[in-house]
Design a protein around this nucleic acid. Structure first.
Lengths: 323, 323
DNA sequence: ATGAAAGCGCTAACAG
DNA sequence: CTGTTAGCGCTTTCAT
């Protein structure tokens, strides 16, 4: 390994001078700049960021704390994040490891939270002293600056659309694992439309997992219990896609027999049969912005929570029905 | 930040002793072990891996060099990799950055290659001196130890199955971006079956991208040019899923009008309509094994190329037809 | 404009 | 069993 020392000797200057030209801090003669540059090129020197990190306390590494990358949802966010991180010279490592110690151990410059693991609190993260930002958060009481998706708005958009299409019996799939704005938004909307709230018209039958598989299982169950509604608002696209498969399996046609709306607009949503009507979350954009937010924070700029607007993407999984 | 020095002072021992108990190297009295452990707990000390890395030249970081995580294919591999990496205390960072310098800069302990970027050669990687392993490689001339998927075998399995189902006109989708075993395997198989080789029965119309979108476009084109075959062997599942959408759009039924086989068996393949018959690659397993392989190599064990067996997963996208 | 020296937090001889 | 010392590769005062 060739170090700054080698360059210094080769160029006949001091190590300090080498540092100065590498980080172009000025105060070095044109002649020396050239000698050093030449040496660097010839010896193929490249700075050791570990050593630098030890000294400067900056590793140029960011931790993305996500439950499971296998969920396409997170992959799209990650992809956006990664793009801006790269532009700023940061590497991102993804971890679903609940151990907060790694943050200090590995000296991450900052962390992006996409969830707070069970058994941990936002206080713990805050106390750890790292630069912190949350992404795609929808819970109300988060003090950490974050990108807030206005899920309530998205739900309302979807519900309105369903209403326009003539639907009056709509099942909402929510989640048990956390407080979910969906339910409140749903109730509020029902009230506004003067529709009755029937508890069997929303489901919280699954815990934590919002996957294809879970959607499939929920779909099967839903059919077997008798179609109690004309439309479903799924927790997310992955689940909606699983349901699509379940309905197909059970001989239930979408949208003829039941209408279905997803959430997130992941890439595949365009390629399902029928193409999935869904609420777009701008996942990629969210990823980019949250990385930008964290990097700003690392640079000691002040950042504040920002609301992301959702958008209804109309494809073919919802039917107009007669009222 | 609390360091080893703080622990030493708090426990009334030397820094070396602290090191010894942390890395339990023995040669420490029971009494001191307890004093140090106590101090660590009370001061909430945790070792700084950057400093350690500088000294030991081990960062416990692995680079996964993959073109795009958005491709579900890579995500599944990554997930497997990540699991075993975690078990061994490694973090993985994914990068599609072509710059080999980061390997030295960031002092990665090893890198897993899923492709060699255009303009680079395996020699370059080898010369860089890092521990190296390749994953899911199918080209023939790779000297780096790797997990080799026997694509030829997979193709043959798929082709055989199609043949059994009565298909004689089969389109193979290959890729332009690299030498692809598929074509050779296809030709060889045709010969064995004494079927004529028709150049219009394989396509290499797309470059590099093997995505949903590309599959969709290819599917549309394929239909518009007139169905010249009864079955398609797609490059991978992502493309097959895109094609499924295209056929649906064009009113072509799968498998009634055309049969379709994918490659990889990604998670969604189970949830398409119809569920996709495909060749399983054991992506998750590949990920796990390649990480294991690299870690062994990092530990200076000798590792060698290993062939992964493919498996035909029969679902419902292939029809039996009359010969 | 240049260099010497100290030190980031850790490990690894070496000496006791 | 324990501690002293040097040093990993880099940055940063502080002199010159």
């Amino acid at each position: 390994m060739v170090t700054r020392k080698d360059i210094a000797e080769y160029a006949g200057v001091s190590k300090t001078t080498v540092t100065r030209v590498i980080n172009n801090q000025g105060n070095v003669s044109q002649e020396n700049i050239e000698k050093v540059s030449q040496a660097i090129k010839e010896l193929e020197y490249c700075p050791n960021m570990v050593a630098r990190g030890l000294k400067t306390k900056k590793t140029y590494q960011i931790l993305f704390h996500a439950p499971a990358l296998l969920n396409p949802f997170f992959v799209e966010i990650y992809t956006g994040m990664n793009e801006v991180a790269q532009q700023h010279g940061y590497h991102i490592v993804v971890s679903s490891n609940d151990d907060l110690k790694v943050i200090e151990q590995r000296q991450y410059d900052g962390v992006i939270l996409s969830y707070i693991p069970i058994g941990h609190s936002q206080e713990e993260y805050k106390n750890s002293g790292v630069k912190l930002v949350a992404t795609n958060y929808s819970t109300l009481d988060l003090e950490i600056p974050h990108l807030k998706v206005d899920i309530a708005h998205g739900i309302t958009q979807a519900l309105d659309y369903l209403y326009e299409c003539g639907h009056r019996k709509i099942v909402l799939f929510s989640a048990q694992f956390a407080y979910d704005q969906r339910i409140d938004a749903y109730k509020k909307w029902l009230q506004a439309k003067q529709l009755p709230f029937q508890s069997d018209l929303y489901h919280t039958d699954y815990i934590g997992k919002t996957t294809y598989e879970q959607g499939y299982n929920s779909g099967i169950l839903f059919v077997e219990n008798g179609l109690i509604a004309t439309a479903i608002l799924a927790f997310n696209d992955a689940m909606a896609i699983g349901m699509l498969a379940a309905f197909k399996r059970k001989g239930i046609r979408v949208p003829e027999d039941i209408s279905l709306i997803g959430f997130d607009d992941i890439t595949q949503a365009k390629y399902t049969d029928p193409p999935l009507t869904t609420v777009s979350n701008s996942l990629y954009q969210i990823g980019k912005e949250s990385a930008q937010m964290l990097i700003s924070k690392i640079n000691n700029e002040t950042v504040s929570t920002k609301v992301i607007k959702t958008e209804l993407v109309i494809r073919n999984s919802v039917a107009k029905i007669n009222i």
